[in-house]
């Protein structure tokens, strides 16, 4: 992985980047009939949980994660991000609240082409983790944000929900609102909550979910963390605070605060 010496980052893990092609002979994979993506996910889980000290930070096709312990500027320079082009960027820095900073525990958390950055805490982590474990996910990165990435992987990729429905499952409407919905919608929401109760993310969060076809911003169902969105021309900006948006786009055309639990879904124009 191309990096450079940066003052302020005295030590770093050994970082390797491989461009790999999943084994083509399906019989060579541990379990036959695995799709490429499932095979990659399994391999990531295996490395993370079985090889002491080794972690996969990034396993996407057209997506990279640059993360570490240090100031954001230093990390950017360390990874030489000026050498990369991208149509979606997410950035994140934090005060390590519950766990001391470590390279694996930094944001984003990625799997395949899913990437999550997160401000807040998932108070329902305990059950979200056990729910994911039932589907073979292994949570090894010692932080709650990891569940968000895997929940999206499960709901969107494996269960085939569209992104909006997945977001609705993760930050579900309250029963009192569901009870007032027209019948079709009520039935749909009731089923969604019954089936995905253990995936409900509870606690304060605002989240940016990046994937190869777009970007989603959403926050918890009672908006315990801020989320602001803005547009200028064909570009969309989202951040916890408006000041962060104005830092890169000083005069946005439209700025708004999405309502609690209501996702802002941006699709790439191709």
């Amino acid at each position: 992985m191309p990096t450079t010496q940066v003052e302020g980052i005295a030590i770093s893990p050994l970082l390797w980047r491989y461009f790999v092609k999943p084994l083509t002979e399906k019989s060579e994979r541990e379990v036959a009939n695995l799709e490429d993506d499932d095979f990659v996910v399994r391999t990531v889980m295996k490395i993370n949980s079985e090889i002491d000290g080794a972690y996969v930070f990034s396993s996407g096709k057209n997506m990279g994660a640059f993360k570490g312990v240090g100031n954001p500027g230093e990390i950017a320079r360390f990874f030489k991000i000026e050498e990369y082009d991208g149509y979606i960027w997410t950035g994140h820095t934090r005060f390590p609240t519950n766990t001391p900073g470590w390279w694996g525990g930094a944001h984003p958390f990625t799997l395949l082409d899913w990437s999550i950055v997160h401000n807040g805490e998932i108070s329902s982590y305990g059950i979200n983790k056990r729910y994911l474990e039932m589907y073979g996910y292994k949570l090894t990165l010692l932080t709650d944000t990891e569940v968000v990435t895997y929940l999206f992987d499960l709901l969107v990729r494996r269960h085939g929900l569209d992104i909006e429905t997945a977001c609705t499952a993760l930050a579900a409407p309250f029963w009192k609102n569901i009870d007032d919905m027209p019948n079709d919608e009520k039935e749909e929401m009731t089923a969604l909550r019954m089936i995905y109760g253990s995936a409900l993310m509870n606690g304060p969060f605002s989240i940016l979910f990046g994937h190869s076809k777009g970007l989603v911003g959403f926050n918890d169902r009672i908006k315990l963390r801020p989320l602001v969105a803005a547009t200028k021309g064909k570009t969309v900006y989202m951040a916890s605070e408006e000041s962060a948006i104005r830092e890169i786009c000083s005069s946005p055309e439209k700025v708004w605060s999405p309502r609690a639990g209501e996702p802002v879904i941006v699709e790439l124009e191709i």
């Binding site: 059950i127 056990r130 729910y131 579900a172 253990s198 409900l200």
Partner: peptide
Amino acid sequence: ALGVNAIESLRGSRER
């Protein structure tokens, strides 16, 4: 007190 607002976030949450 647990910071959640639905019983399903407690159900099976042995971490708590």
